[in-house]
Design a protein around this nucleic acid. Structure first.
Lengths: 333, 333
DNA sequence: CTACTCAATGTAAGCGCTTACAAAATATTT
DNA sequence: AAATATTTTGTAAGCGCTTACATTGAGTAG
């Protein structure tokens, strides 16, 4: 592998000059630039990014932490972030935290040890304190889908309370009054926020929340099925079921179908997230749009602006509002 | 950020000694190890991976190229590879090539410039020649889902011909004789292989392949819908439809339903890949299992064994065989 | 023609580590 | 106790770049 030294020799110039034509910042005469470029081409020279980073203290790469590498939600997030960053010549290093405090911690330390210029974190397990310390330290950090007190400027979140509210409100507006709910794991802020929104909508409509109408799932498909089965026993004759995400809604639909329900005529179902496959389901799932795409984009723009001095093409916002995506699983009563 | 130098000072030892306790290879007396570790802890020392890499010529990270960062197929691949590599203390740097020759090329160059210890590539657009050159160069390379002549030892592939064959054979065994086919983009090897398998199964059953029974899609959902609509006109009254992947099968199901078909009673559908959401569909999709998980795992083990001298727990194999996943969309005639 | 600018290039000191080799400290043998 | 082997530690030379600063060489003004 050719080094900058060999290029400088072949071109008959100094190291510094080669470096200058590589980076295109300082001025170099046309003639020497040509010489250097020819030398590079003929040697098949490829700069060593590691050495560049060490010397310049810039890696041109930003770290992205997600909970999992699979799943539509994170797929969308990774895609979006990569897209806007790559468009601006920056690279993304992706790691997974698996919703486990230690592993998230490790993943973040890895990104730091890799000297990423900035971090974009979808961190669920690590503590608020840890995140605060991180922000106070040198690395620019942005947090997605989690609101940390005192870190408003670094957080990009969707209004989950409002989302939960909208989902249930949609069911109420369609005439439903006996509404069941399958939540996510309630120790997670987004899960509890969505449930809070659900309760708020009920209350506003003069309906009382019944503990028996609630099943706590884990955001995975299987607990949607379990939840549906469980609720049939504990809270019979509900006409609408609101689920805290699309995976669980899908599971619930399967269970409902197996139990002989016609969707949406006998049972309405509303999801949350509007992940890609929600429109492949049959019937197509009515759900709440989680603007993960917009958030990822915004986080990337924030980084460009704050770390690389590249102006964001859109104003930076921190709160995103969800909205109802009306499809085929919510019927009028 | 503390450096090794500060640690050595705080501990009252030399740089070399600190480096030794960090890497745990050479022997260090218990007493000095303790001193160094204390110094590290109190300084919150974190080694600079960039500097380590430059000095040692080892990055402990392997590059992974996928076509997209979203989608179940790549999600599975990334997850699997990351899992086994991380278990062995190695890191993964993921990039996307977007099935575009230039972007794939760039992505690979990025990984090389990042001095990855090895590359795992799901490269679709780049030429065979380029891959051969890559393998001949210093970087250890492994190719997933693509067979390159003379590179057998570096390729991990599924037998797509067999998969295509099995899909159609399943339909034939269920009594179907008029079978339509929606292929992937035929310039892609996997798409044409699957189609070849389809034709082989027809031939073997004494059925003749009719060009009108074929629609060339692009592996995305929408072309499944289009294909279904198109085929109804060009090749009416087919009773089974085989699709070259699950996304298109899903699209075809939607279109079929809109056209009033009952699946599987009036129309049978078979997919390919067995991606996660194929079992969320209604009816649950009968499909061909694409052992992407096994391939990713194997590729990772290959890297561990060949690059890091960590013995693979299972024998390295290069050819994977697909099999039918019998669910609810294939009916008997 | 000399003095002075300013652009183009070169020199050399790091960036934070690893690692061959040398030196010192300790253990073993006789 | 001296001689030797062995373990532990230190010294210093890089790894391939960037960049502050010094130098050179034109170009311009007087």
């Amino acid at each position: 592998m050719a080094t900058i030294y060999q290029v400088s020799e072949a071109a008959g110039v100094s190291l510094a000059t080669v470096s200058r034509v590589m980076n295109g910042n300082a001025k170099v005469s046309e003639r020497t630039r040509k010489k250097v470029e020819d030398a590079m081409a003929s040697l098949g020279y490829q700069p060593n990014a590691i050495a560049q980073s060490l010397a310049s203290n810039r890696t041109n790469s930003v770290g992205l932490l997600v909970s999992e590498l699979h799943g539509s939600y994170f797929g969308d997030l990774m895609s979006t972030v990569e897209h806007v960053l790559k468009e601006n010549g920056k690279h993304v290093i992706i790691t997974a935290g698996h919703v486990d405090e230690e592993r998230e911690h490790e993943a973040i330390e890895f990104l730091k040890s890799r000297r990423c210029d900035a971090l974009i974190l979808h961190a669920e397990a690590v503590s608020d304190d840890y995140l605060k310390k991180l922000v106070e330290s040198k690395v620019p950090v942005v947090v997605i889908n989690r609101k940390v007190d005192e870190l408003d400027q670094n957080c990009f979140v969707v209004d989950n309370v409002k989302g939960g509210y909208l989902a249930t409100k949609a069911a109420i507006d369609a005439g439903h009054t006996k509404i069941a709910y399958i939540s996510g794991p309630l120790f997670k802020k987004d899960a509890s926020d969505r449930l809070a929104g659900h309760k708020k909508a009920l209350e506003e409509a003069g309906l009382t929340f019944d503990n028996k109408s609630l099943f706590e799932g884990d955001f995975h498909e299987s607990t949607g099925q379990e939840g549906m089965q469980h609720l049939q026993a504990t809270f019979p004759d509900f006409t609408a079921l609101v689920c805290a995400n699309d995976e669980m809604a899908s599971g619930a639909m399967t269970a409902a179908r197996e139990a002989g329900f016609d969707i949406p005529n006998q049972l309405s179902i509303v999801g949350f997230d509007n992940v890609l496959f929600s429109r492949y389901l049959y019937p197509k799932l009515t759900t709440i749009n989680n603007p993960i795409h917009a958030m990822g984009e915004m986080a990337a723009y924030w980084v460009l602006e704050h770390v690389y001095d590249i102006k964001s093409p859109i104003p930076i916002e921190h709160l995103f509002v969800p909205e109802v995506v009306d499809r085929d699983t919510l019927g009028n009563l």
